[in-house]
């Protein structure tokens, strides 16, 4: 691995949770570190460093992406959603409510990424089958729940969203 002797920076403009952010960032800065350290949005977690576990999942233009293996500068001009951007003025949205109601979380470390992936699924497939849900979240590892209650939570959210629409 080459050692970087001098700091190289790049200007970056992104929209994070609806707010435009313009920062001069180190070019090699990972997106997850930009979110956590530059912007202080610590709800996005790091679990593996190798794109395997999904704890760092954020939505980039609505698509779940693993922010631990993406440079911040690759998000130039994009719209990002993190867990902190989910809740509007009307209280927790259906997905958050559903994860709690169905006991779809225990330690909470995978939960932000798991919810964001689920939201992207429900955008594409408002009434997913068990199989679709399990496939969609298969890039997000949970060590605590055994997934069954997460699958239930996604169904729960799907039903609530239909009722609400």
């Amino acid at each position: 691995m080459a050692v970087q002797e001098a700091v190289v920076t790049t200007p970056l403009t992104v929209t994070v949770n609806g707010q435009e952010r313009a920062e001069e960032v180190e070019t090699r800065l990972l997106l997850v570190h930009f979110l956590r350290e530059t912007l202080g949005l610590t709800g996005t977690h790091v679990g593996c460093d190798t794109t395997s576990c999904g704890a760092c999942t954020v939505l980039v233009d609505g698509t779940p992406m693993k922010s631990c293996t993406m440079f911040a500068v690759q998000a130039e001009g994009r719209e990002l959603t993190t867990v902190e951007g989910l809740e509007g003025a009307g209280g927790p949205p259906p997905i958050q409510e559903a994860f709690s109601a169905e006991h779809g979380l225990q330690c909470g470390f995978c939960t932000p990424g798991m919810m964001l992936t689920s939201i992207a699924l429900l955008e594409q497939s408002p009434s997913p089958t068990d199989e679709e849900i399990r496939w969609a979240i298969s890039g997000n590892v949970c060590r605590c729940t055994g997934y069954q209650n997460i699958v239930k939570a996604v169904h729960h959210a799907a039903a609530a969203m239909k009722e609400g629409s």
Binding site: R36, L41, T42, G43, T44, H45, V46, T82, V83, E84, L86, E87, P92, Q96, F99, S100, A101, H103, L105, C107, G108, F109, T111, P112, M115
Partner: peptide, 17 residues
Amino acid sequence: RRKEDARFIRGKGNYVE
């Protein structure tokens, strides 16, 4: 329902990192 969920579902857990 678990009391701890309120912070975890909002990304407001406070882990060492």
